[in-house]
Amino acid sequence: MPHNSSARKHGGEHSDGGGSASKIQRVKAGRVSEDNEKKSSSKRLKDVEISVPIVYGTISFWLGKKANEYHSHKWTVYVRGATNEDLGVVIKRVVFTLHPSFSNPTRAVESPPFELSESGWGEFEIVITIHFHNDVCDKQLDLYHHLKLYPEDESGTQSTKKPVVVETYDEMVFSEPSESFFARVQNHPAVIVPRLPASFNLPPPESIDDMNERKRGDTNDHPLSQWFMNFSEADELLKLAAARQQVQAHIARIKRQMIVKFLGLDDRG
């Protein structure tokens, strides 16, 4: 935060150095209203869901010798594809709401990469508001992220080369998508779409203003990409399998305890 903000706060999910802290959510983003459906002349696909994995978070660097009382860190807040693809095919704009002590605290980013860089000395909650294209969803999606500047272990030495990274993996789920939306993203690497019957004919995808001018997969060459956390479906499946094994082992222990207790009661009888 700038110099006129309150004292820095600690808390929330965080990570020391180059490591990343993460949590997983699944957000239902809604669907297109009937009014927008009529405007786009696109029908909705019943019993179909489109999933868009995203990651949002912050990367903060200590300024070292360049740090002063009011500017100790430089940081970037962002929304990116889970594997760093261009999200402009789904997202129209992202609005970042910073601490009110910043000049112009509400900042809108109209095209990818959807990110904002600033400098300051304090931690605070950033509101990230995602606006979608008209044929995707009428409602905005509000996300909340706590900016973390300082490592978890405050006794440790800060580094100008190793940032503090905090990221959250999320999945935006769109139920009953419009045909135009489905057609536009069905082969896009950032979007998970189901297979439709071979006999089903989709209309040609509708173009989005300036879409051709955007660099597809723009965040793949992002200067901060070395610090991005890798999220993959395979990793999540491994985590789920490990959790299932732990649950099964716990159930087996409880069953053994119940059997032993039951047999003990019988022996006393």
Rank of each mutant, 00 (worst) to 15 (best):
F182E: 10
D153N: 14
N230P: 07
F132Y: 15
S101N: 07
F132D: 03
V185E: 10
F102N: 11
L63R: 15
S15P: 03
Y56P: 00
L45Q: 11
S51I: 09
S33W: 09
L141K: 12
D221E: 09
A234D: 14
P163F: 00
E13L: 11
E125C: 00
K215N: 03
K65V: 02
L87D: 05
Q25I: 09
D138W: 06
F231Y: 13
R44Q: 13
G30W: 09
L240K: 15
I128F: 01
L265K: 15
S33H: 12
V95H: 04
V79W: 03
L87W: 12
G64E: 04
S41F: 11
C137H: 06
E206H: 11
T129W: 00
A190W: 07
E118P: 07
S178W: 00
W62M: 02
S72V: 10
R214A: 05
I130H: 02
A82I: 01
S22D: 14
H146I: 03
F231L: 06
K9E: 12
R31K: 15
Y144V: 14
L224W: 05
F102S: 09
E176A: 11
A234G: 12
D35W: 11
M1G: 11
L202E: 04
S72G: 13
V127C: 03
L237T: 09
Q248V: 10
F231E: 02
R107I: 14
W121F: 03
S5W: 03
S20G: 11
R214T: 06
F114L: 01
G269F: 05
R184F: 04
P100E: 00
T106S: 11
M258G: 01
K255V: 08
E206A: 15
H188C: 07
H14L: 09
H99P: 03
D138L: 04
F182C: 08
M258W: 03
K161P: 00
A7N: 14
E34H: 14
R268M: 10
L87H: 10
W121A: 12
G19H: 12
V173L: 07
S199V: 14
K23M: 06
G156W: 00
P205N: 08
I130L: 05
E236T: 08
T129Y: 01
K148V: 03
E179W: 01
S199L: 12
V247S: 12
A7D: 15
N104L: 06
A21R: 08
V166F: 00
K92W: 02
V165T: 13
N84Y: 08
A242Q: 15
